[in-house]
């Protein structure tokens, strides 16, 4: 019986496995292989050459760019977590009717199903030199000159990340909060806990798995991004993803591949650490 199960299981999982092998495993293998190849101006040549890695680790730019990547990931994480947690808390514990809960939750998730590129573009009229933010601040008399750092800056990059990815925090945190047994909260209240104590000692510990899943989403999305940084910084800042995409634009595939391998290892390492704190399969 068990043997039969394994056979049928594999048979049904075969199509998904085939897709993942061909479009995930093989591409990764290919990237690892090409990262040892050599490049001329016109083509790439199979070789076993550590030059790409030597160049990568020998260059100061690499360390700066990796530092930048972590900085974006950390700042985005702080903001998405605090906003996402507050929103999920409101939805789960303060909205009383289930219909309203569903409606408001959907309102939070709908942007996820629309285009990221357009959501980035839509910041232009707001942040631009003559944009809404500057003209409002000037009319209030807060500033005399328009601020230049609103659009095409690190500020804009973080803002866009928070705008794009906060719902990746809201959804898993809300999901875990909805499964908290309300009698636990009542018990805490009966035992004399204040609202803040309930939040800190009961709700936050029980919400940790959701927080971890949201964190994994946000951190990996930000670390692997290249388009938000390029667009929102006006090509003035760089993260690892942009380093890779610049190499690709120059057709320097082996060098792009070496950077990609290091990026992948970094991301997997970060995820590996986080997975120690949460069992994803149990949370579904």
């Amino acid at each position: 019986m068990l043997k039969n199960n394994t056979f049928i299981g594999w048979l049904m999982a075969l199509p998904i496995m085939a897709v993942l092998v061909f479009f995930l495993v093989l591409p990764i293998a290919m990237i690892v292989m090409v990262s040892f190849w050599k490049a001329t101006e016109f083509s790439i040549i199979p070789a076993f050459d550590l030059g790409n890695y030597e160049f990568l680790f020998g260059s100061n730019v690499t360390y700066r760019v990796f530092f930048n990547t972590f900085k974006y990931a950390f700042l985005t994480w702080v903001f998405t977590l605090s906003i996402g947690f507050t929103v999920a808390y409101f939805l789960a514990f303060h909205v009383r009717s289930q219909t309203w809960q569903i409606v408001l939750f959907l309102l939070c998730t709908i942007p996820f199903w629309t285009s990221n590129i357009i959501r980035m573009i839509s910041w232009i009229p707001f942040l631009g030199r003559n944009g809404i933010a500057n003209s409002t601040l000037i009319s209030w008399g807060v500033i005399d000159q328009p601020l230049d750092w609103l659009l095409f800056s690190d500020f804009a990059v973080i803002l866009a990340f928070v705008h794009l990815y906060t719902l990746f925090m809201v959804v898993p945190i809300f999901n875990t909060m909805m499964r908290i047994d309300t009698s636990l909260i009542e018990a805490a209240r009966d035992a004399g806990a204040s609202g803040a104590q309930i939040l800190w000692n009961v709700i936050i510990p029980l919400t940790k798995p959701g927080i971890m899943i949201g964190t994994i989403f946000v951190v990996t999305l930000v670390m692997g991004d290249f388009i938000t940084v390029r667009f929102m910084s006006g090509s003035q800042s760089a993260n690892v993803g942009r380093l890779i995409s610049n190499d690709i634009a120059l057709l320097a595939y082996p060098s792009a591949a070496a950077t990609a391998v290091v990026l992948l290892l970094t991301v997997l390492l970060v995820i590996g650490v986080m997975l120690r704190f949460v069992d994803i399969r149990k949370e579904l």
């Binding site: 479009f23 990764i28 990996t220 692997g224 993803g241 890779i244 690709i248 792009a256 991301v267």
Partner: peptide, 9 residues
């Protein structure tokens, strides 16, 4: 979790 650009590349 893999960065999308790796799949592309």
């Amino acid at each position: 979790v893999i960065p999308s650009i790796l799949i592309s590349l």
